[in-house]
Nucleic acid binder design. Structure first.
Lengths: 215, 215
DNA sequence: TATCTATCTTAACACTGTTTAGATTGACCG
DNA sequence: CGGTCAATCTAAACAGTGTTAAGATAGATA
């Protein structure tokens, strides 16, 4: 189930990661990213602190700066992986269905499911002010996720590229808005399993309303 | 251009809106709310600090606590007024048009216009973790804004209340998602006047696509 | 083996929100 | 008119935060 999220290029070239080191951590980047994701999962986007991430990785508060520059740099890395995971989820969802409408529908469900399952990460991915918003890799990761929508939309609406772009913006806006509103409890409590199910059926109705079979 | 969003009442320039500064401020609540809105307008939601609001109101950092309890309490008050302003904008926009579809369309434009014009306040209104999320007045203000959509939607779709609820969720999700994505630069830069205009025409296309004349 | 450089720590700085105790004030009430 | 009292605000402190500068350590290299 856990698919490799990071690009294939992995290690800092020269050495094999040693689990137990002394002064040198060995895998500090990965440890900090993992710690950050854990904090986001436990405490949400507002709960993240750089010091806590360092604490969990077992290093001093100043250590992260050598690898990520600052907190925004670390969070940017987390967001990039988040976008990759989201793109993967969208691709997977579409691949399991046949017919453009069914694919789009499945993508919409997958998008909101991702948001509800990883609220902290999701919120952080769209918090430009806490990221290095103009990082090329971040921008590309975001575009790649959006592209997953455009692929299916192009299949669905045929028309000019301009029209496809419009339709893709419409689809993305709808599911993104729904996810955001749901996370702020605008469609009822979201903490419980039952709450989540109710929200997902509401989403189902919304998608059927906006993209009926006739489209 | 800048329309008074707060009740027409006071004109608190930074200091001493009232007679000579004494030990008592006299209108501290209003001054703090105005200061907070100014910070949100200048620095965005992430730029707000309680101390800066106190500074602008000319009081000590501890003063706000006597009126609002804590930072969340102050921001909750700001958010309540924000929702009232949003509801007013939606009502105004609808009242200027005839026909349910035109009204809904105008509301969608007004919603995004509000978000682009007051990004800091808008983001804060939907940042539950920074507010007293279960404050009854806040919840009611939020529901009142959402209700503006439901009124028009009921006019448009006729059907069962359940169907109207679905359609309202769809409309709200779409414009909210569009606004949020636009504020995170997903539809291009949003700082310039030209950027905003381009975004609004994109929104126009989206609304025409999702709510065509035939609905 | 000696040096070099990446990595990490220690310590400090300027912030933040919140709490406690005390000072000041205006208003009520005899 | 004068005294009490509650409301209002300040001062000071505390535990946090992100970031930086200077120095220690260790792994790799020559």
């Amino acid at each position: 189930m856990t698919k490799p999220i990071a690009p294939a290029r992995a290690k800092p070239s020269h050495k094999v990661p040693k689990p137990e080191a002394g002064y040198h951590h060995g895998e500090l980047q990965e440890a900090l990213i993992a710690a950050s994701e854990a904090i986001l999962a436990e405490q949400g986007a507002e709960g993240f602190t750089l010091r806590e991430a360092a604490r969990r990785a077992g290093v001093s508060p100043a250590a992260p700066s050598h690898h990520f520059g600052n907190a925004q740099g670390l969070l940017t890395e987390v967001a990039i992986r988040g976008y990759a995971a989201l793109a993967g989820a969208l691709r997977d969802a579409a691949s399991r269905k046949q017919g453009a409408r069914e694919k789009l529908h499945a993508q919409g469900l997958a998008y909101v499911e991702f948001a509800l399952k990883h609220p902290g990460r999701f919120q952080m991915m769209f918090a430009n002010k806490r990221l290095v918003a103009d990082d090329p890799r971040l921008r590309q990761a975001s575009r790649a996720a959006g592209h997953e929508f455009e692929i299916i939309i192009a299949e669905l609406v045929g028309g000019t590229p301009r029209q496809a772009k419009t339709a893709a913006a419409a689809a993305w806006s709808t599911v993104h808005g729904f996810a955001k509103l749901a996370l702020e409890d605008k469609f009822g409590p979201v903490k419980s399993e039952a709450g989540d199910r109710k929200i997902m059926t509401t989403l189902n109705h919304v998608l059927n309303y906006l993209w009926p079979a006739s489209r």
